[in-house]
Structure formats: C-alpha cells, structure tokens
Amino acid sequence: MATAKQAIQIPDFSFSTPIDQVGVNERADRFTKRSIKKESKVNGLKLVLNMIDLTTLEGKDTPGKVKQLCYKAMHPHDAVPDLPTVAAVCVYPSMVKVAKKALGNSGIKVASVATAFPSGQAPKDVKLRDTKYAVQNGADEVDMVISRGKFHAGEYNFVFDEIAAIKEACGPARLKVILETGELVTYDKVRKASDIAMQAGADFIKTSTGKIQPAATMPVTLVMLEAIRDFYYKTGKMIGMKPAGGISKSKLALHYLVMVKEVLGEAWLSNEWFRFGASSLANDVLMQIVKEKTGVYQSANYFSID
C-alpha cells in the first residue's frame, strides 16, 4: 500500500465502538463511593480550582462583567493565601479582547466559544470567520460546537471536515470540540462523536455548551474518557477532556478527578489535560477550602459574586 495512504488512517465511523450503557452507569456510580478527606481533600480542591474554566456565556454579558470575572479568576479569594488561579476564562468572541487585556500576563488563558455557539447552525464560512476573529483577538483556546443536525443525519464526513477546517483556522490556539452530549442522547453516539472529533484534530473534547439539559454527567464523561484512552493507545496522542455544565459542587468535582485518575491516570491530572467548564463551582470549592482551614461551615455571603 502506498505510504501516503498509510499516513492518514481514518477509521470508518459507521462502525464505532458500541457502549454498554448499564455497565457505564454502574462504573460511573462507583466513583462516587470514594471518600476523600482532610489533606487529600484540600489538595484535590486546589487542583479542581486550578482546572476551572471560569465561564460567562450570556447575551447580557458586558465588558464590566467580563472584567469582574477576570479579576475573580486572578484573585479567587484573597483571604486565603497560596491559592492557585483558575485555568482560563471562557467568553464569547466579542469579549475576548476585554478578557485578554484584563488578564494581562497572569498566565490565565482566554478561551472563546466560536462557530455560532451554542447551536452551530450557521454556514461554514461564518463559523470560520467567527473562529478567526476570536483567535485574532487573542484567544488561547477555541471552544467549537459540532453540527449535531448533520451528525444525526449520518453525515459524519461533514462533521469531520468541519472540525478539521476549524482546527486549521485556530492556528496555535488549542481547539476544544463541544459534542453537546445532551443532544446526542445515546452513549453510542457520544462515543462516535468523540472518535470523530479526536481523529479530526481536537485538542480537547468537551461535553456540553451548558445551554442544554442534561449537560455533563459522570457516565457521559466516562464514555468520553474511555474514548480518549483508546485513542491514546492507538496513536500515542494525549487529548484533553472538559466536562461542562451542571458541575457546581466540590464533592462532585472530586468524584470527577477520581474518575480521570482511574481511567486515564496521573498524566491527565493537570489543567493542561482536564478542565471543568463552570461558574458557580469556583465559589463552592473556595467555601470548602476555607471550611477545611477554619473548621467552620461557610456562607456564600463572604465570597465574591461570580
């Protein structure tokens, strides 16, 4: 066979790995039975905080709101020294410039959603321009949505080509591909979409936009983590994972970390390879950290609004 053909080996996506739904649900449930206390809990919570993509994706976002969020990203809770910052701030393309300026050289990344987020119902050239606009304004990461309609219609090539084209438009920016698992419905389809995204060049795969219920759940994340694991075994390439939406409590976030560690291993336990897309999670984590420090249950009144 010709070498040029061997270089690009794209599997036939119509034969994607089937998923055992009952098995996945039960396995995911096991992760919630671990007890993490005291010192390990504090370390885990700090890691969670460091993995958060602090997000505001609303029609009513203003430059002021974004600046406030950026300040929160850099100073989660100044009353506690030696806290890490969050990983990134996630905004709409029109707010990238504001966020970039506000974050300065803090090392916190700016992530921008693009490609007609959240529906993805726009022609390809609009999506490409949307992406380029975000990157030109300084986005370090791009969160794109896949075309779920085309995916359901079985046009996997279309979905694949679109992701590949956006990846090209991203240039140096890392690409997170949002599958919107709430609209894919079955685990089989989630697995298939994950495979397509990774093969097409995604740096991260992400569960949800946060606009559709259900958003991230543990079983769906498990399916995606296993897809990442299989992809890694096949190609040696690490892909990141970002569950987003619906994770607002520290305890749940710690369960996710347990899951990542047990499915993918230590290598993925950093914000380079794992993120939480969330906004209210940050304050809950901070409240738990302060609780561990002071021994007293905390009130949201004493933490900045996010």
Binding site: G295, V296, Y297, Q298, S299, A300, N301, Y302
Partner: peptide, 8 residues
C-alpha cells in the same frame, strides 16, 4: 457548637 459556628 456547630449550631452557633455556622457562618450561614
């Protein structure tokens, strides 16, 4: 003590 300590 928990009843009286809780910040909320």
């Amino acid at each position: 003590t928990w009843f009286v300590d809780h910040m909320d």
